[in-house]
């Protein structure tokens, strides 16, 4: 088994050899490490992508807007990811944004995961019929379980989810009520001795 350290170093060097700058290659190293840590096929997809990159003119997107469409081909997931992590404060303010054609979307996912941690919000990444929920860079959940990940996402939507509860108030109250059964009713004498009791708070 390869260690994460080997995965990061080799991904970084391979990306540099494929023409990315050292700074961008460092980002790729971190992101592929993250994918493999989460059990997603980072190495397989980076390998395929870097091979295809030489024959396919993937596009860079320097400024991310609400709606993003490549001119001719599909977006490079790495440059797009770097732009996303760099511009995340602005992009977050859109609440959601959409893209057409991102190559090897799985390589874009770790950038979204890190972005989720930066902004402190969960991010929902939807492409075609697949969904990925990025949870503060702590875990990734998805409905896509097959090993073969698509090498092109045609229609993509990213939603920045507000920090809201994942349950109803009723469900919360029900659970809270049960938790109260660990509490003990205080007697009057105990109340008299509690912190702040008996003092004049206007002194």
């Amino acid at each position: 088994m390869k260690s994460l350290s080997e995965i990061e170093t080799t991904s970084k060097r391979a990306s540099r050899a494929a023409g990315f700058s050292w700074g961008v290659s460092e980002e790729v190293g971190k992101c592929v490490r993250l994918l493999e840590l989460f059990g997603l096929p980072g190495i397989v997809n980076l390998n395929s992508y870097l091979k295809e990159k030489n024959i396919n003119d993937f596009e860079n997107l320097k400024l991310i807007g609400n709606e993003n469409k490549p001119k001719n081909n599909s977006f490079c997931p790495i440059y797009l990811g770097v732009s996303l992590i760099d511009q995340i404060r602005t992009v977050e303010s859109f609440k959601s944004c959409s893209f057409i054609n991102i190559a090897y979307p799985i390589l874009f996912i770790p950038f979204l995961s890190r972005a989720s941690e930066v902004i402190g919000k969960k991010i929902l990444f939807i492409f075609d019929n697949n969904q990925f929920l990025l949870n503060f860079n702590l875990c990734i959940s998805s409905n896509l379980t097959k090993k073969q990940y698509p090498n092109l996402a045609k229609k993509i939507k990213i939603n920045f989810l507000e920090n809201t509860d994942n349950f109803s108030e009723l469900e919360w109250k029900s659970l809270y009520k049960l938790s109260e059964e660990t509490f003990v009713e205080e007697t009057e004498s105990l109340k008299q001795g509690a912190a702040g009791a008996g003092l004049n708070d206007n002194d």
């Binding site: 700058s21 700074g23 961008v24 460092e26 400024l63 770097v82 760099d86």
Partner: peptide, 17 residues
């Protein structure tokens, strides 16, 4: 902003960091 600077100067990203 640094994000805009980096979008044109990817070769300097490692030293900006």
């Amino acid at each position: 902003k640094i994000d805009e600077f980096l979008s044109e100067n990817s070769d300097l990203r490692h030293v900006v960091r």
